[in-house]
Nucleic acid binder design. Structure first.
Ligand code: ZN
Ligand code: ZN
Ligand code: ZN
Ligand code: ZN
Lengths: 139, 139
DNA sequence: AGCGAGACTGAGAACCGTTGTCAAACCGAC
DNA sequence: GTCGGTTTGACAACGGTTCTCAGTCTCGCT
């Protein structure tokens, strides 16, 4: 037995490295969804140096842990954002990217109901709302 | 004036070619969402020969015309399906891909309301529900 | 402090879905 | 049949993402 963990399954340890801190800080600096490339650029501009592959690896890990949300642009590019841990959806400005987390109990129920009506089980869903935010509309 | 169309703006003509018919037929043969590659493969298997680039071009045209829906897999790959012309969403089986078109007036309204509350205009939204269909659940 | 096992990283290649290029083929109107 | 514009296909190019793997770093242990 080489692991120092007792009991439970052999989950690999996750170490707090300079690179992971840099990615976390970049995520905190942004308020909206950003591509891995943009996050990588911000880190570089601040003098730090983190490989792009490491940015991807870190984002994936964080997404798996539920600490960031990942979604896809219309063009298929992955974009990430630090989000709250509870289930929510997004209201995103097409022009400036401003993002608001929103909840929709009615939608959650609708999804469950319509799925059950058709005999579907183990339901999950994706829902994003796009629009033009106030300041972008009046500009 | 070289166009035979009278009046209106000079929209380019769209010709019914063998290739476009083949893509349309392949779409009809499928009941669920498929990638361009899969559609191309089906056409090939049936003896027809249509370039992959042409499949992409045709699918894009059909999508612009609202005759097919395009959405993205979790991995970012584009998949297409011939769908009804009215606004709807999808209930998709994770295991077999079986797809049901569903409507959700309550959801449409929720999206408009929550967007208005936050001052967003020109709203659009994406919503897909994933699950395991009856026959896949009992298998 | 020194060590060892294993986690982590970076540079670049590889991957893969998608789009661009452009000469040849095609279609339809005349 | 002729002519201009449309469409096509083979292939290159592109862009985001993942893989590779040798070198580096962490951390528990002594
Ligand atoms: Zn979120
Ligand atoms: Zn939800
Ligand atoms: Zn549809
Ligand atoms: Zn809708």
């Amino acid at each position: 037995m080489t692991s120092t963990e007792r009991g439970g399954p052999d989950r690999p340890t996750v170490r707090p490295t300079r690179q992971r801190r840099a990615v976390a800080a970049a995520l905190d600096a942004f308020d909206d969804f950003r591509s891995a490339q943009e996050i990588h650029d911000l880190i570089s501009r601040q003098g730090d140096s983190v490989g792009l592959a490491t940015v991807y690896r870190t984002l994936s890990t964080l997404a798996d842990a539920g600490e960031v949300d990942m979604l896809r642009t219309e063009e298929g590019e992955a974009i990430w954002r630090r989000c709250s841990g509870t289930h929510h959806h997004h209201l995103v400005c097409r022009a400036c990217g401003a993002t608001v987390e929103v909840e929709g109990p009615a939608v959650e129920q609708w999804a469950d109901t319509v799925a059950a009506e058709h005999g579907f089980a183990a339901i999950s869903h994706t829902l994003e709302v796009f629009g033009t935010c106030r300041s972008c509309s009046t500009r």
